[in-house]
Structure formats: structure tokens, C-alpha cells
Simulated scan of single mutants.
Amino acid sequence: MRLRIALGAPSAAAAAVLAAVVLAAPLPAHAVQRPELGWDVKPTGVTARLRGLSPVSRGVVWASGSGGTVLRTVDGGRSWQNVSPPGTTALEFRDIEAFDARRAVALSIGAGPDSRVYRTDDGGRTWTETFRNDEPQAFYDCMAFFDRRHGLAMSDPVDGRFRILATADGGRSWQVLPSGGMPQALPGEAGFAASGQCLVTAGGRDAWLATGGAERSRVFHSGDRGRTWTVTDTPIPAGDPARGVFALAFRDPHRGIAVGGDYRIEQRSPVAGAVTRDGGASWAVSATPPPAYRSGVTWLPHQPSAAVAVGPSGSDVTYSDGRKWETFDEGSFDTVSCARDRSCWAAGEQGRIAELTTR
């Protein structure tokens, strides 16, 4: 549009047109304002390491961790209830999936019978053990749900293939799925029970699981709720039991982020992030990856290209779908997750739980 404005005071109509054009013009890149992020730590009264996290809303959050610990808040973190299942102090609850303030499913990890699933329907006052692993080779790492009824849990390889457990009734009962649709695992390949995010879902049927420990780190994808899988290499280094992909997050069935590295503090992790735009069929290194090992990652629901990653040495944010990351906090967290109402939370060592703040 070409504007011609006479010299002197512009007419009211001309001024209105000019104002509209100025407001519609895009801001220069340097003028784009990013929110300032931070963590508001909420005292929990426990010292357990909390690697399982499931925020339902800004008011309702569940967390789980070492010593058989399960916590719940219904007032936005002002107070926390210890609702741990009785007789489980020897277990590590590395993952928890909550549906609301009353219903949740918790996964304990470990070899043989230490891998278990518990469900509560009354806010943690009582729990029912709904699965106990009886396969000596199995070691369950993570759990994820498609909806309130359908979910999966993954185990490290048994007889050369990752084992998948499935539920169709909200975790009240489980069955081991046939292994014929699972590709062969590499020697030494396993999942990492670091944040409850080595197995994730998007939509009603797509699931992904992340691995490391072998000569290559890989991501497996299923489009039929765990019946059959394909697998793709990622550029995140492996080749050691301490290295690989530790966590995944998918915005939808196509856009995904992988984070990881080497969890040993003394080891560098220069390639700690990767991205996919085709549902995990291919992965590319983040142009500016997180600066160190990261164990958890989540998309921010209120910004379509933004995500947050956490680890023992800090938290990072991306506003470019995982291509470029920048650190905004140096505190220690193991896992991070967001609720549907856009509230986001992180949890980690020494009972640390925090809500993400913006300004």
C-alpha cells in the first residue's frame, strides 16, 4: 500500500491509517521480548530425590522418588501430603502419572520384583499393587499414558528386545505385549530411569522410547500403542553405559525433542540435544544444544515453539522448537512437566519441587 500524506498536520483519517500500519509492522528481531523465567521452590518437608512428576493443574501436583516416596499437593505447593504406599521404603518410584487429585499410578523401578505398579483412587490414602514383575531379566524404567485408560510401561531388553507392558483400564491391570513387533536391541542398550521421560506419548496412539548405553543412542516409535515399533539412530553420543538419550518430549506426532548426554558430573556433554520434525524418523543435532547433561524436557503449553530442559547443573529454555537453547537457572532438577492449565513444575534432589514463573 502506498500512502500519500500532505504536509502539515495529518487528517484524522490519515493518522488512523498511519497508526494501523505502524502497529501491524513486525518488530525487529532485537525488539522481541522473551519472558524472564525462574523457579519458585516449594518446600516439601522431605529429602527424597524426586524423579517422578505429574502436575494435573496449578493446584494439584503429584511427585515420587526414592525411599518409596509419593507426595501430593492440592493447594499449589503451599503444603504437601506424604501419601507414600505403605511398606515401600525400599522401592524407587521413578515415575508417576496422575489423572486428577484422587487418581494416580506410580511405577517403581529395579530388577525382578522391585519393578512394580501401584494405583490409588482416593488421593493416596490407600494403594493397590496392580503389577509386580516376575521376569528376572526385566527392569522397568518409565511409564506413559495416552488417556485415562490406555498406557504403557517399558523395561530394558529381555531376550534381546525391549519389553512393553500395557494397560487398558487406567493401570488397574497390565499385560506384557508380544515382542515380535519390537526391533532387536543393541548389545548394552537400555533405557534411563532418570526422569520418567524415557517413554512418552502424543495423541491417542503414538509412543516413543529413548535409549543409550550401546554404541549408538536410539529412539523407538510405535504408531499402534506399542504393538509394533521402528527405530532410528540419534546424534546424541552413546558408547558408554552413562551416555545416551535420557528424555523425550513430543508436541504432537511430528515435532519432538531429545535431551541427554553423560550423567557423570566430570564428563562433558557437548551434544546434549536433538530435534525431529518427522515423528522420530530422523534426528538432527540442536544448533545450540543445552550446555551440559539434561535428564528432563517438556514443551511449554502456552508458547508453540518453546520448551524447557532440566538437569543437575541447570535449566535451559528454547524458543525455536529445540534448535537453540539458553540457560536461565543453575539449580539442580531431574524432571520437568507441564499441566493442561499451562502451569509447569520441576522436581529433583533433596525433595526440591518448584513452579515455573514468568515475568
Rank of each mutant, 00 (worst) to 15 (best):
R4T: 15
L7S: 14
A16S: 14
A25D: 04
P26Q: 08
A31N: 00
V32R: 14
E36R: 15
L37G: 12
D40G: 07
P43Y: 08
T44G: 09
T44R: 10
A48Y: 05
G52Q: 11
P55A: 11
V56R: 05
V61E: 12
A63I: 04
A63H: 09
G65H: 11
G68A: 14
V70T: 07
V70F: 06
V70D: 10
L71S: 13
T73I: 02
G77E: 06
W80M: 09
Q81H: 08
Q81A: 15
S84K: 09
P86L: 11
G87Y: 03
T89Q: 12
L91F: 01
E92T: 05
F93E: 03
R94I: 04
R94V: 11
R94M: 05
R94K: 13
D95T: 15
E97D: 08
A106Q: 03
L107F: 09
A111W: 08
A111N: 12
A111D: 09
A111E: 10
D114Q: 14
S115K: 01
F131A: 03
F131D: 01
R132Q: 14
N133C: 12
D134A: 15
Q137T: 09
M143G: 10
A144F: 03
R148L: 06
D156E: 04
D159P: 01
R163A: 14
I164Q: 07
L165S: 00
A166D: 01
A168T: 14
S173H: 02
L177C: 06
L177V: 10
S179C: 02
G180H: 11
G181L: 13
L186A: 15
L186S: 14
E189P: 07
G191L: 00
L199Q: 10
A202K: 11
G204Q: 15
W208C: 09
T211R: 00
G213C: 00
A214C: 07
R216D: 09
R218M: 03
V219W: 01
F220I: 00
S222K: 11
D224M: 13
R225T: 07
W229E: 04
T232D: 00
T234C: 01
T234I: 01
P235W: 03
P235T: 08
I236N: 03
I236L: 12
P237Y: 06
A238N: 05
D240K: 12
P241H: 10
R243S: 14
A247R: 05
R251Y: 00
D252C: 09
D252R: 05
P253F: 03
P253C: 06
G256S: 02
A258K: 02
G261F: 08
Y263A: 01
R264A: 08
S269R: 07
V275W: 02
V285A: 13
P289T: 09
R294P: 00
R294E: 01
R294V: 01
S295D: 06
G296Y: 12
L300G: 06
P304Y: 05
P304D: 13
S305T: 15
A306I: 05
A307D: 07
V308Q: 08
V310L: 09
P312I: 07
P312Q: 10
S315F: 04
S315Q: 11
Y319G: 12
S320Y: 06
S320F: 08
G322A: 08
R323E: 13
R323S: 14
W325I: 04
G331Q: 15
G331S: 15
D334P: 03
T335C: 06
A339W: 13
R340V: 13
A346H: 04
Q350V: 02
G351D: 15
R352P: 09
T357G: 04
T358Y: 11
T358F: 10
